[in-house]
């Protein structure tokens, strides 16, 4: 199910809530991963943004390259510029 929880003149945030189940833990985990994959692939295809307000963290990191539409050198450059050794929260934001 979904609610449209934040709205602007240009567009809005879609807030999906999902519930699912599976027989084994493995099933459930797979379903969880598939669900995210399908949802975010669809989001990228539809030119939406990966996140409206929860952020990226680790979960959405692998889509960041697509999300940034070619501008990732800028973000990576910024990271290298101020954190050349990569000691600040490594592995997040896909950089």
């Amino acid at each position: 199910m979904a609610h449209f929880s934040h709205a602007y003149a240009q567009g809005c945030s879609i807030y999906f809530s999902v519930a699912s189940t599976g027989r084994t833990l493995g099933d459930r985990l797979k379903r969880y991963d598939d669900l995210w994959n399908d949802a975010l692939e669809a989001c990228m295809k539809a030119d939406g943004a990966l996140s409206h307000h929860h952020g990226i963290g680790m979960l959405k990191a692998k889509w960041m390259e697509t999300e940034l539409g070619g501008a990732s050198p800028l973000l990576k450059g910024l990271k290298r510029a101020i954190d050349p050794k990569g000691i600040m929260n490594p592995g997040k934001l896909g950089i």
Partner: peptide, 11 residues
């Protein structure tokens, strides 16, 4: 580059 055409984001 083409940045995303969305009103707001947390990315």
């Amino acid at each position: 580059f083409h940045t995303r055409n969305t009103p707001r984001s947390a990315t």
